[in-house]
Design a binder for these strands. Structure first.
Length: 506
RNA sequence: GAAGGGGUAGCUCAGUCGGUAGAGCAGCGGCCUUUUAAGCCGUAGGUCGUGGGUUCGAGCCCCACCCCCUUCACCA
């Protein structure tokens, strides 16, 4: 059926014809190898290569995609795009052979084809660095046309005409998006650098990168609805992980000082510009540390990430410049609420708190405890105002069944979130390592589940058994990689930092 | 899940009061040996998201559905 559809399009049909003609002329449109010795970037950075005379010039060979073409009869210019950028190539009939120039380059090569050239570097009359091709070779014939954008400079500002901008097409065919939109390639390169920077930061600190199960018989570590699957041979239900927390803590119990994992997690919930059904988190657990220590660690790591990506701690994000320079403010949650709303919730009983929340226009129902109300007020009136990196500390115990009770504050746990650009980017706590307390917290979750809370955690007997063998005091951290990438690359939608965001089938 | 916006040529977009589909780029045929949104001459290209309806006649009006985007709700 797809074949039939194609035959209706002249553009596609024509390329098939060209393919046949290439075979008939003895030209292999899909050869096996090309000896690449240079990249567009390398040539642009080494002006010493520019030839005084062609005879003595160094020969370079490079390969890439034909992006634009200006044919002037027996000579032509085209732009060759490799993974580093674009460079202009000058090609003449008398240099590459009449047959090659006329029958292959001019007649059979289309925009989007991948070609290889060998030649020397020179500057044109208008001063553009250009490769003068002495050898030209088709390396891969494209059977579909690429959407070509053209650029002009008006008053020194680059203007792109007819850019491939349809979001649906860009997400569904990211390969095309990457070919024609260089800034997309740059965004994902930055994302990769960001992850590498975090990885090496943790490795240098002496922590072990590990892998833990994605398919889990009991899911846990976060409040979320899971994806469910089925193992045929064992005939059992399995869940795709919503977090890897409980497995990493088992490894701390096993004796490692620090473990981390960049983890694809899966949550069966709504989609939005901040949510994709599968997303990436890094989680880190470090023995003998607490959440105060972890705040230092997060500050240092993310400051380092900002510097390595932007050469500065200052990162442009939308209308703002976000400065990751440490130290970041550390504000207890109740204090942050007080600062923003003037309300001091600390001494209030449930009834007073309900009243206060209603006064702020927050919908309250009977099932909400004090912790939930505090969380609502914070989410509604404080979080979105925190643009610069800020640690919010000491969360209500109800929302944090895996965090250790605060050493001095009642009803709170030793937990912090790092908020940035109005959104959580990190979540961490002094990990609960008291197995008796942990069992009670799980049992509370089970009660919530029985009351219909679909996101309440399941009781994990094996995890409790592990805790009973003794877990050192431990600091734990989770950082949403996609959310952080959005900030570090100045993108408004999670889809723009995921190569293949989830889409309904075409 | 709800509301709003959108879907017209390969790409980016026009399309008036309902009167039988348009441009630029890409393509195709020519000319052109330092061009650069190359240029000049010529030419072809459409299931107007899908399916119904109203009408003499629908890209346009009505109904249903599909897909994308944004906002809201849950969440990282």
């Amino acid at each position: 059926m797809a074949e039939q559809e194609q035959s209706h399009s002249e553009l596609l049909a024509l390329r098939r014809v060209k393919l046949e003609q290439l075979y008939e002329n003895g030209v292999n449109p899909y050869p096996f190898f090309f000896d690449v010795t240079a990249t567009s970037e390398k040539l642009k950075n080494s002006t010493g290569l520019i030839a005084q005379t062609p005879d003595t010039a160094e020969r370079v060979s490079l390969a890439g995609r034909v992006m634009t073409r200006r044919i002037m009869g027996k000579a032509a210019f085209f732009n060759l795009q490799d993974s580093h950028g674009t460079i202009q190539v000058y090609i003449r009939r008398d240099d590459v052979g009449v047959e090659n120039y006329n029958s292959v380059f001019k007649k059979m090569v289309d925009l989007g084809d991948i070609v290889g050239v060998r030649g020397f570097v020179f500057k044109t009359q208008t001063g553009e660095l250009t490769v003068h091709a002495e050898h030209f070779e088709l390396l891969s014939k494209a059977l579909r046309p690429i959407p070509i954008a053209k650029e002009t400079e008006e008053n020194g500002i680059k203007v792109v005409h007819d850019a491939f901008s349809d979001k649906e097409l860009r997400y569904r065919m990211r390969y095309v998006d990457l070919i024609v939109n260089p800034e997309v390639r740059e965004t994902f390169r930055k994302r990769s650098m960001m992850v590498q920077e975090m990885r090496s930061f943790m490795l240098k600190a002496g922590y072990l990168e590990v892998e833990t199960p994605i398919l889990q018989p009991v899911y846990g570590g976060a409040s979320a609805k899971p994806f469910v699957t089925h193992h045929n041979t064992l005939d059992m239900k399995l869940y795709l992980r919503v977090a890897n927390e409980l497995y990493l803590k088992r490894l701390i119990i096993g004796g490692y000082d620090g473990v981390f994992e960049f983890s694809k997690d899966f949550r069966n919930e709504g989609m939005s510009r901040f949510h994709n059904p599968e997303f990436t988190q890094v989680e880190l657990y470090v023995a003998y540390k607490d959440y105060n220590w972890m705040m230092d660690f997060v500050e240092r790591m993310l400051e380092q990430v900002a510097i390595s990506l932007h050469g500065s701690t200052r990162v442009p994000v939308g209308e703002h410049i976000i400065d990751f320079k440490r130290p970041w403010p550390r504000i207890p949650m109740l204090e942050a609420i007080k600062n923003e709303t003037g309300l001091d919730l600390s001494g209030m009983n449930l009834e007073q708190m309900q009243q206060a929340a209603r006064g702020l226009g927050i919908q309250i129902d009977a099932t909400m405890g004090k912790g939930k109300i505090i969380d609502e007020i914070f989410g509604e009136h404080v979080e979105h105002k925190l643009i610069q990196p800020t640690f919010i500390t000491d969360y209500p115990i109800e929302m944090s069944p895996l965090a250790k009770k605060h050493r001095s504050k009642e009803d709170l746990v030793e937990r912090f979130e790092a908020i940035c650009n109005g959104k959580e980017i990190a979540n961490a706590f002094s990990e609960l390592n008291d197995p008796v307390d942990q069992r009670q917290r799980f049992e509370e979750q089970v009660r919530l589940r029985e009351q219909g809370d679909e996101e309440a955690m399941a009781l994990d007997e094996d995890f409790l058994r592990a805790l009973e063998y003794g877990m050192p005091p431990t600091a734990g951290l989770g950082i949403g990689i996609d959310r952080l990438a959005m900030i570090m690359t100045n993108q408004e939608s999670i889809r723009d930092v995921l190569f293949f965001p989830h889409m309904r089938p075409e």
